[in-house]
């Protein structure tokens, strides 16, 4: 085990898979000469050259579409979209091509393309601070991974690069510098396996990506007041593994979902509905959700801070649920 940043873990996954498999190549805006907008691909251009680390025009539709076509043609493309906000311009390719290909043509061919893109924020205002994971997770045929830790980022990305299916791999701009333990050697993490990060008897907190860290911090504070939370990291949003969540809720009788997208029609809505169905008789309180306030993201720092849930909100909400 070595400590590594989320950014470097992703870079290593790319590098190792590119060394292992000639078919893997990267395309996207500023991935090559520049070294990646968030420096994830820095160094790969020098190692693999312009053939395999390909700068593209600012044209998200053809970046994703050509990646899908290249996957049909036998390659293993990694399309990097500078941020998830720009994925909207490529939405048609993701929705109508990538996620439909296998079914629509009767299982004759799939398109194993990996679309890497960060969600996140940081005084970037309304169009550059969004989280669309729930939109993508609603699509049958598309795998959606949203790792929270360096270990999971590397393992899930390697898994994605060996998958036969299209994968939306959603990173988080505020996690790139987060450091964590990463196993030595080659490993992958399967899709559709949630992880219990912390076990506690009083409440089940469900989260993923950056909010997982906030939830864990809140759980640690709650523990000082003798409130024990279970915290579960979903890791992939499709397939969505809620079995451990249901099991846990049966013990704790309370569930709180913490997400960074808007609460209305967000991931939490789906999770709450399923808990309500599969653990109805065990609930001692309504399933609760914490997510972004329902406004376009403002620029001003104090306003931006108000728009997202923080540790203190989680703590307060859990206490409310327990009274």
């Amino acid at each position: 085990m070595a400590e590594q940043s989320y950014r470097d873990a992703i870079k290593d996954a790319l590098r190792e898979e590119m060394r292992r498999d000639e078919r893997v190549f990267i395309l996207g805006e500023e991935v090559g000469v520049w070294g990646g907008t968030y420096a994830v691909t820095r160094g790969l251009y020098d190692e693999f050259g312009a053939k395999r680390v390909r700068d593209t025009p600012i044209a998200e539709s053809v970046i994703v579409g050509a990646a899908i076509g290249a996957a049909m043609g036998g390659l293993r493309p990694v399309a990097e979209l500078m941020t998830i906000n720009f994925s909207l311009v490529a939405m048609d390719q993701i929705v109508n091509n990538a996620s439909k290909m296998f079914y629509m043509f009767g299982g004759q061919f799939s398109c194993p393309v990996v679309i890497r893109t960060p969600a996140g924020w940081g005084q970037l205002a309304a169009t550059h601070s969004q989280s669309f994971e729930a939109w993508y997770a609603s699509l049958p045929g598309l795998i959606v991974a949203m790792p929270a830790t360096p270990r999971d980022a590397k393992g899930l990305l390697k898994r994605a690069l060996r998958s036969n299916n299209p994968v939306m791999f959603i990173e988080h701009a505020r996690l790139y510098n987060v450091v964590g333990e990463v196993p030595d050697g080659d490993y992958t993490i399967p899709f559709g396996v949630s992880e219990i990060k912390r076990a506690g008897r009083d409440v089940t907190i469900v989260s993923y990506s950056r909010m997982l860290h906030v939830a864990l911090a809140a759980a640690n504070k709650l523990a000082q007041e003798n409130i024990e939370a279970t915290v579960i990291d979903l890791r992939t949003l499709r397939p969505l593994d809620l079995a451990p969540v249901i099991e846990s809720v049966k013990q704790t009788h309370r569930a709180l979902i913490v997400e960074e997208d808007w609460v209305t029609c967000g991931m939490g809505a789906e999770i709450a509905a399923r808990i309500g169905k599969d653990a109805f008789d065990y609930l001692d309180a309504p399933v609760e959700r914490l997510g972004a306030i329902e406004v376009p993201m403002p620029y001003s720092k104090p306003l931006e801070a108000l728009a997202l849930p923080e540790e203190k909100h989680i703590i307060a909400r859990v206490k409310e649920m327990l009274t």
Binding site: F25, K51, S61, V62, V64, G65, A66, A67, I68, G69, A70, A71, M72, G73, G74, L75, P77, D92, Q93, N96, N97, M104, F105, F109
Partner: peptide, 24 residues
């Protein structure tokens, strides 16, 4: 590789297929 029903949506796929041939 198929008929596609979103006007223009398949053109990028052909770019990718052409690239795959070039790459290999």
């Amino acid at each position: 590789w198929g008929g596609y029903a979103i006007v223009g949506g398949h053109i990028p796929l052909a770019v990718g297929l052409a690239f795959a041939a070039q790459y290999q």
